[in-house]
């Protein structure tokens, strides 16, 4: 730590705090506002202090725009944003750069380019074949998925039909009409369900509520009950269905450890086996 910094410890702390709390790089002017007057002999000392901090590795800047500063950790967050953008849909380099202008506000453009180049070098961003044209696409996955290409096709349709006056919503409505699945089977009243129907319904709804349930993720029983309210309105019927599925080894029912301390209202949301045990969640058994 340099003498300069040591003489302004409060200013250093304030600058670090402001940078930590900011989601984007900060200019000298913004940092000056975050530092109380008492912490610096003069505001003129601030640029030199910030340079000292850069040299000490506490913060960073870029020669292309040296009046902007950020914490080293913010670069990884920015990289994450780039990856998030590319995990939504693959983009050409030009489209991505244009998108990054709004995604990474405050960053010097050369630094944005460097971060992208680094992600490509580190194989966190991949070049994948385009749907049309010659320009390769950048993607967060090593190969584009069918979903990526369908999204790109839809994007293409939106762009083309825009000239004919169609909005994005209108294009998507047309797409839904074209690909509309067969109508869902009408809700069956509880009375018409037999036990097997109810069990099937519960298992189906578990997966709809949490697709990861297929890999063992739990589904909260209060949410499942709520999701099936129109089909299974009777609490006892729902509870018995869950316990039956557990006994048959189709699901694992997880007991609430501290049910004794819950209110009647909270208990009612859980599933009871009628023997003093209350269950909070279910998972699919292998």
């Amino acid at each position: 730590m340099s003498n300069e910094q040591a003489s302004h410890p409060e200013a250093v702390a304030c600058a670090l705090r402001a940078l930590r709390e900011s989601a984007q790089p900060l200019t000298v002017a913004k940092l000056a506002k975050a530092i109380p007057k008492s912490a610096l002999k003069s505001k003129k000392d601030l640029p030199e202090l910030l340079e000292q901090m850069v040299r000490a590795g506490q913060i960073r800047s870029h020669k292309a725009r040296s009046s902007v500063y950020w914490l080293p950790g913010l670069e990884e967050q920015a990289s994450e944003r780039i990856l998030e953008a590319l995990s939504e849909i693959p983009l050409t380099q030009t489209d991505l750069k244009s998108k990054l202008r709004s995604l990474l506000i405050g960053w010097p453009q050369p630094r944005r380019d460097e971060m992208l180049a680094r992600l490509i070098k580190e194989k966190r961003v991949y070049r994948v074949p385009p749907l049309t044209g010659k320009a390769t696409l950048l993607s967060a996955r090593d190969e584009a998925t069918p979903q990526d290409y369908v999204r790109l096709a839809l994007q293409l349709a939106v762009d083309r039909l825009k000239t004919r006056g169609l909005t994005v919503e209108q294009v998507l409505t047309v797409a839904r009409e074209v690909f509309q699945p067969a109508p869902a089977s009408p809700a069956i009243s509880p009375s018409s369900h037999d036990a097997a129907d109810l069990e099937r319904l519960v298992l189906e709804r578990m997966l709809r509520l949490n697709p990861s349930a297929v890999n063992g993720a739990p589904v909260q029983l209060s949410q499942l009950r709520q999701a099936l309210r129109s089909e299974i309105s009777d609490k006892d019927v729902f509870d018995r269905t869950i316990m039956r599925l557990a006994e048959h080894g189709r699901v694992a029912a997880h007991r609430h450890d501290y049910a004794g301390g819950l209110s009647q209202e909270d208990l009612a949301a859980l599933v009871s086996d009628g023997q003093g045990n209350y269950f909070i969640a279910v998972t699919l058994r292998d």
Partner: peptide, 10 residues
Amino acid sequence: REFAEVSLNP
């Protein structure tokens, strides 16, 4: 829970 969420069943 990015990679997985798993439960230890009874």
